[in-house]
Nucleic acid binder design. Structure first.
Lengths: 246, 246
DNA sequence: GAAGATTTCTTGTCAGGACAATTGGACAAG
DNA sequence: CTTGTCCAATTGTCCTGACAAGAAATCTTC
């Protein structure tokens, strides 16, 4: 019943042991050697076999349960969940998503300005009085066809932005390189109808469906770094997520 | 710097200690006695004061970090995150959502049938050959105005459904009462344009924006219990969520 | 054979301790 | 005044050990 499951543990690696275990199990699930519905070895046995403690194994499994790959049941065991598409809605950017998916995203900078924060933005970002913002709009395309129209505001006391770098790199990439560690984001997803301007930019018809997304991202020091309002062509993009009951 | 933070621990309670701690901290945050940005006592001190072990405290804080209420930083401490609206997207039904918002939802059953599963549904639910499904559409209204049009398929070997109970109760309520414990759901959110039928049902104009949501829910035994395809009036509903970096 | 009691298996909770890694500030050196 | 170094504070990781609770299988009894 219990699958063998060979995982290599490198105790000299800087990667935490529990994470090595989690990666090992996740890998086995993704490459199919652990099929959906399979029951895993029990925690104690696995711990002994890998010469790790049970809490370490549990921590690894906890993480996988959190991300929706495993299901545990007391008295029964741990199972691999049914084989759906298992992409988690993560704190990531569209750029990252597309690159992972193997598409080649390209970005056109439509406008760029460095201005005092409008009142609404100042509120959204909880800005001190003397902080200004960068405001810019970009068009993101994938595979040659336009996909998203993105309007963003970024506070200017954390990173210095200019048109050139924005043309060459994704926003989140630039922020990460500037030492910003994102921790949280609040976002809202809805729908709207394309107006003439949006339609023209996205090469769609006026009146066609768009997915809207507003997001405000917070870094590890508690600052609201960035807020943005994006619209996506509904026929080309949707948000997928796995919800986990806790 | 460290806030006193009084939490009552009841060791005779069936509620796990770590959960009592988490509830205590969460309560203090929500009622304002722990303001945003406040630094918490360090883990060891808090453990000693409550006469609990450090792992127990850590487990409590882990959960709160997961749900986006706290942020930890090694070498620094643990902080309450900024006072955004801290609602997170949970595994819940629209009915639950509305009840929390204080509105009074009402449901109209538009159609109901008990049929062999169409091929596509059979695939989505990973159904065995001999299992049929209930298929029904409902209109959900709040405050007298229509809000959502919901089409669902439920496998018939887990719960017995009929028109009467569906008129009286929410779907998730019925399933929970039948002993179904949900663990996961995969969902996709997008947008579309209202066609004539949808527009008429939702009391909107044809061509107006709709938010679409497809969801498949999995119970604790790994079965795909239910799948549904819902559309919401975009001017009345959107999905909010807090994403946490892991 | 069926119903109930018992045992066994597995995860859930909790304790206590040890050391590592990171951060920020204080302090010393240039 | 700037730079680098050290130190203290705090969370991160990992270990061992123990018992509780729920679920399923097995045994017992009628």
């Amino acid at each position: 019943m219990s699958t063998p499951l060979s995982i290599k543990i490198d105790r000299s690696s800087p990667i935490p042991l529990y994470h090595q275990v989690a990666q090992g199990i996740e890998g086995a699930i993704r490459d199919g050697s652990l099929a959906s519905g399979t029951r895993l070895e029990n925690e104690i046995e696995l711990a002994q076999r890998l010469r790790l403690s049970r809490p370490t194994i549990r921590k690894a499994m906890d993480d996988l349960v959190q991300s929706g790959l495993l299901v545990r049941k007391r008295g029964v065991g741990t199972q691999v969940v049914s084989s759906q598409i298992r992409r988690h809605l993560e704190l990531s950017s569209l750029n990252d998503d597309l690159e992972r998916a193997g598409k080649k995203p390209s970005t056109t900078l439509l406008s760029f300005e460095h201005i005092p924060a409008p009142e609404q933005i100042q509120e959204l970002l909880s800005l001190p009085k003397d902080v200004s913002v960068y405001h810019f709009t970009r068009l993101r395309s994938a595979g040659g066809s336009p996909l998203a129209l993105m309007e963003n505001w970024v506070r200017d006391d954390i990173v210095e932005l200019d048109e050139k770098s924005l043309r060459a790199h994704g926003l989140y990439e630039l922020l990460r390189d500037a030492g910003v560690n994102f921790r949280l984001a609040q976002q809202r997803i809805g729908a709207t109808i394309a107006d003439d301007i949006q339609a023209k930019a996205l090469d769609a018809e006026a009146g066609s469906a768009l997915v809207t997304m507003q997001r405000t991202a917070v870094d590890d020091t508690g600052r609201n770094v960035e807020t943005g309002s994006h619209v996506y062509r509904a026929d080309a993009y949707s948000f997928e997520m796995t919800l986990v009951q806790r």
